[in-house]
Design a protein around this nucleic acid. Structure first.
Lengths: 253, 253
DNA sequence: TCGTCACGTGATGATTTCGTGATGAATTGC
DNA sequence: GCAATTCATCACGAAATCATCACGTGACGA
């Protein structure tokens, strides 16, 4: 799938090579040659992040790459930054990473490695980007036997499709994006129903109940959605208890 | 900021070095020495993701590091993986990243760089957990073998989850946030039960008792929650007092 | 118009947690 | 040593919390 990448590189040979390769890999790549142009490009659109990844050289005309990164991070801590530079000293690498880079590659680089690192960053960044309202292009979320495709609004359990209603799907995908986090009922109402909804907390119970009946082998002993007493509910990524003796009424406290 | 890290490394020198350094940096680090143990540790019976980061050597006994990563990714696309290995060939790096690693460091490594990369991954992973919304953000509280995660409303002892009730959890996390401080019963009632509660002081006793039964190996000789005679209770300040045998360490009998 | 479906609410029974009293053990002060 | 506190531990009923079912409503399409 196509991602938007900003390449900041003053060396024309390297810049040309990189943008060609990135476009070749199927991405949309803009290439600028100095720090101020980089910031301009990054902030051109205020409605959302303009790029899914920034490749940043450090020694740049008009504004240092570190400074670009610093300013970017001041406004946007999400867009992944990959520093590509000749500065290979230990303290340079550490400084770059501490300022907010997500990865750091020193020149001369192996092109395949650089591209693989780009892919890894895009993959990771994309998962993060899937907020509560899902935009297209998000890869499915895999949680053990559960596959949740927010894009297609589809859920599979052990390869079998599961039919969920709107609220059930919204609940499950919220849970799956925050495995382990304990949500209280009010929080769930806010995030799934919307803050303007004012109904009863125990509406959540009913929906959790219906959801469990669809995805749990034994709804009384839920494997995915646990009850946190006095708090709310929590999604589990306890994937290993796949099927050894699921459903057998053994009592092992 | 304390995070939970799993270090998979069969070389005892490097494993020791890494886990020491990570603990030194304030994290909770478990160290295993082969691939199967890694998977076991990752998917031990538990709720939620067990670790915030996995450091993975590739050449391992019993199961290849790549295979570990592959299997992990089959069930969990979120936990960040940092490969640390001597395999430095371009195709190795590319393969590792493609399989699902988020970063790849070759041996011999510069320790400061490695630690900076760990920090960068944790930072990114934390945002991933919080996403565009503001969920999460509170790293777990680590007191030696005790890990208290307010976010997930979860407690681990020596890596094993401990089931606590609401009051028990509130008590323990209050204690853990003030190690060494002696709380009298009235103070505990005020801060855990609320000032409007008017019950008996010795209600606290019962809850401390129940709590000890769950987290102390020998409740009669408490390691965490000490009794201060005539005053109240105190959480041990020697948080690093790991249990002698059930530690994070490798397999040194 | 009717049937179907998703959803919210109420009611009921089951489960878990909580507070209290009672009793025995540990500690302190004399 | 001995009495007086103070604490640990256990059991039990009350209260809080949760699971489950049934029903009514409104939306939507046949």
């Amino acid at each position: 799938m196509a991602y938007r990448i900003l390449c900041v590189e003053d060396n024309p040979e390297i810049g040309k090579l990189l943008s060609e390769q990135l476009i070749n890999a199927g991405h949309a790549c803009d290439w600028v040659t100095d720090g101020e142009a980089a910031l301009t490009a990054l902030y051109r659109d205020t409605t959302g992040p303009r790029y899914d990844l920034v490749m940043l050289d450090l020694m740049l005309p008009r504004m240092d790459g570190l400074e670009v990164c610093r300013r970017l991070r001041r406004r946007d801590s999400l867009t992944p930054v990959l520093m590509v530079t000749a500065k290979a000293a230990t303290r340079d690498v550490v400084e770059g990473l501490e300022i907010g880079a997500d990865d750091y590659v020193t020149k001369p680089f192996q092109l395949p490695i650089l591209l693989a690192r780009v892919q890894a960053l895009l993959r990771r960044g994309q998962q993060r980007a899937s907020g509560d309202d899902d935009i297209g292009g998000t890869p499915p979320l895999v949680c053990g036997p559960l596959v949740i495709d927010t894009d297609q609004h589809r859920v599979e359990l052990d390869g079998e499709p599961v039919q969920l209603t709107g609220k059930e799907f919204a609940l499950l995908s919220l849970f799956a994006r925050h495995p382990g986090h304990s949500f209280c009922r009010g929080e769930l109402l806010d995030r799934v129903w919307g803050e303007e909804f004012n109904g009863y907390d125990h509406t959540v119970n009913t929906h959790i109940n219906r959801l469990r009946n669809k995805i749990e082998a034994d709804p009384a002993r839920p494997r995915f959605i646990e009850t946190v007493w006095g708090v709310g509910y929590r999604f589990t990524s306890r994937c290993d208890a796949a099927s050894p003796d699921a459903g057998v009424g053994g009592e092992s406290p």
